[in-house]
């Protein structure tokens, strides 16, 4: 286990360096990613031109919720980005066969190919957004709080990464499409808004079935000092369960793997 994690991080470091090789691309990518984030922020801003609260949450609180989600998503991008496109990147082109020959767990090899250096910028940006909104909400920033933010941020990223790993196995059958992972990943947008605004079906979906609410909603309540925020402390359990399922499912898919042969 420890060995696997160490190998994973050395792979990850190598792929990040590969990405940084093309500096201009990297910079353009970073700028445009921020432009893309702007879209979400513009939408939130427009909402509050029409109302002063949504589901009982005001503008600053919603920005905080957004920042918490963004931090976890950025961590996912940084650590588990490769799960997003397994079919196209590894299986269709036959690269997966090389990975199988390595004396390393194939899942570790695949995850280590993640190369979204832009995520680093995101992490810093969302962290600033969180601290800034918390200060605006008159919450004293203590060292303990900062550790909590980072802790839940990373844990949230690991949870989302787990979902992605589970659904990435679709690539073994579709070879090409990353649409399944994209669908699941898109569901995180639901948790960018307070769950009060949803109907029962979606509430159950994002708290029980795919607990994105444990990534953003409950930690945010926790930072705001609400009593419901204590639920956030089950996040590690959720992460363990998700990854337990992910590894089981991944191994199942691995046994079914048939090379495309090119």
């Amino acid at each position: 286990m420890i060995r696997n994690i160490r190998i994973y991080f050395s792979f990850l470091g190598a792929s990040l360096k590969k990405m940084l090789e093309y500096r201009v691309d990297c910079l353009v990518g970073m700028v445009s990613q921020i432009a893309f984030q702007l879209i979400e922020l513009i939408f939130i801003w427009i909402i509050f031109q029409n109302t002063d609260n949504i589901g009982g949450w005001n503008f600053t609180q919603l920005l905080l919720l957004y920042g918490v989600m963004m931090l976890s998503v950025a961590v996912t991008d940084l650590l588990f980005d490769a799960t997003y496109d397994i079919g196209n990147r590894f299986i269709r082109k036959g690269k997966f066969d090389t990975i199988l020959l390595r004396p390393v767990n194939p899942l570790i090899s695949v995850l280590g190919e993640s190369q979204t250096s832009t995520a680093l910028g995101y992490i810093i940006l969302s962290f600033i957004l969180i601290v800034f909104t918390l200060m605006k909400l008159n919450i004293t920033i203590t060292l303990f709080l900062i550790i909590k933010i980072l802790y839940f941020g990373i844990l949230g990223g690991i949870i989302i990464g787990g979902f992605q790993t589970i659904f990435s196995i679709s690539g073994f059958w579709t070879y090409k499409s990353n649409e399944v992972v994209w669908s699941v990943f898109q569901l995180h947008k639901l948790a960018e808004y307070p769950i009060e605004i949803y109907n029962k079906f979606i509430r159950v979906l994002i708290t029980m079935i795919l607990p994105f609410a444990c990534v953003s909603y409950f930690p945010t309540l926790n930072y705001l000092g609400s009593s419901k925020g204590k639920i956030a402390y089950i996040a590690p359990v959720v992460a363990i369960i998700v990854w337990f399922i992910a590894i089981k499912v991944w191994n199942f898919a691995l046994n079914k793997y048939r090379s495309t042969g090119n």
Binding site: Y22, V24, D25, L27, V28, G29, M30, V31, S32, Q33, A35, F36, L38, I39
Partner: peptide, 15 residues
């Protein structure tokens, strides 16, 4: 001119 148009793609979509 550039090695990947990934960034330009995102920019186009964003605009």
């Amino acid at each position: 001119y550039s090695n990947s148009i990934w960034g330009m793609q995102i920019l186009r979509k964003a605009i």
